[in-house]
Amino acid sequence: MRAWYRHRLKAWHLFLIPFCLLWGYPFIWMISAAFKSQREMLLGGLSIIPQDWTLRNFQRAWTTARFGDYTINTITYSVTVVILVLLVSALAGYALARKGLPGKKAIVAVLVVTMFIPHGYTIIPTFLLVNGLGLNNGLLGAALAQAGPVLVVPVLLFMGFFAGIPKELEEAARVDGAGYPRTFFQIMLPLAKPVIGTVALMQFISAWNAFFIPLVFTLGRPDLRTLGVGMFNFFGQNSTDWTGLAAGACIAVIPIIVVFLFLQRTFVEGIAGAVKS
């Protein structure tokens, strides 16, 4: 009985291995096509390993299709979003962790409620507001629009973390003459490294992958496109340059996958934590 059970478990590999390979096929195709010559692609080679390896596609994507610029834009955009979210949510989370802060419950309630009320699509007022601030067609405006709605979970994470720190630590700092801001920046914030890591990683990945907001806010400035938006426009104009597309896709997707692979535990735990709590 036992042996049969163990064999049955092993039999699952016969299903899982091909399934996962098929699942990952788009990535495999992407990488292999990026190194194939355009000629080989046109002849319809289905083989995964390119006949003659070439870096031409990457060159073309990087310079002609401006993926180099797009990469820099994407990094600027993502880093700005991460810094904004971290700073704003850490400050707010610290303040909201205080016991007996008047208005605390109301603020937390508003935060949570907006997360659960479906509010349709509010991109237009956001767009008009950024326009009104004179930040349209700039990456800062897009970063603000991206950072605003995603604050809730980071604020709650920081709040939960700071509320769990013993009060004595704060009091000791106060006795030593540290004021409120100094206690926060020099003592409390360094303690919050795990939360900072989780929030930074989650926000970096979602900002890197964002499409709607960068698309809307760079309509008038093609030079500020991020990778996703650039890819979209490249596809619209050159839908036949498949190897160039594949190289562009690699430039857009592989860095973020590498970041994820190094820090996957943090990321997966972050998502899982959202469900459990």
Binding site: T114, I124, L129, A147, G148
Partner: peptide
């Protein structure tokens, strides 16, 4: 604490609450 809350209230108010009302 309220000073610390100001950036969040501005950012969240401007880019989440206001768009919901303005829509």
């Amino acid at each position: 604490s309220y000073v610390f809350l100001i950036p969040m209230i501005l950012l969240f108010g401007a880019f989440t609450v206001w768009p919901m009302i303005a829509s």
